[in-house]
């Protein structure tokens, strides 16, 4: 991996960590605040692609594991990996890789704005909703022994928020692609 790609991944990991430290952002049209950290994970895949985006998220997870309180709310340490909700944490890595892989396939510079945003949105939905929640549900069901259907019901509450985040990630991803055309799209 080129030094530049390593640095890009590290910088994005720093962005994800920083997004966990800022207060949740309120959206105009819904009364629920949005935690920006999981948005950062989607953005890593959309903007950096599979390899560098995956590495960025992996670095965040390594920081968590070595005892830095880098998750939102000051969480961190090995204890976060032994909870039944750890699937959503470990799933970040697979989500970022999948989002990056799909973004690289779906989106090209020559497409129209609508196609680009739609492509990014589909990628963020596949990785950030289907894969992330799928893994989270499996882990939760195994960890608590409640069974898949109840884990799925508990998970449903978080789906609307993540669909919204996928939409924001798609818009932001396209805005960065247009606003910073020098960023190499392929790792």
């Amino acid at each position: 991996m080129a030094t530049r790609d390593l640095v890009l991944a590290a910088l994005f990991a720093a962005i994800i960590v920083a997004l966990g430290l800022v207060p949740p952002i309120m959206l105009g049209f819904i009364p629920v605040p949005i935690t920006a950290q999981s948005l950062g994970v989607m953005l890593a895949g959309v903007i950096l692609g599979a390899k560098r985006g995956g590495l960025a998220v992996l670095l965040v997870l390594v920081l968590v594991a070595i005892g830095l309180p880098v998750l939102s709310g000051g969480r961190g340490g090995l204890a976060t990996f032994v909870l039944p909700t750890a699937g959503y944490l470990v799933g970040w890595f697979f989500a970022a890789v999948a989002i990056g892989y799909c973004s690289e396939r779906f989106v090209g510079r020559s497409q129209s704005a609508l196609v680009q945003v739609t492509g990014f949105f589909m990628a963020a939905m596949i990785g950030g909703v289907v894969i992330l929640h799928g893994l989270g549900i499996l882990w939760l069901a195994y960890g608590t022994g409640t069974g898949l259907s109840t884990a799925f019901l508990g998970d449903l509450a978080f789906i609307p928020g993540d669909i919204l985040k996928a939409a924001i990630a798609a818009l932001a991803g396209r805005a960065v692609m247009v606003g910073y055309p020098l960023l190499p799209q392929r790792a």
């Binding site: 997004l19 105009g28 606003g179």
Partner: peptide
């Protein structure tokens, strides 16, 4: 807004 905060931050 998330968009107007995140995009300049990332770039």
């Amino acid at each position: 807004r998330p968009l107007t905060l995140a995009v300049p931050l990332i770039i």
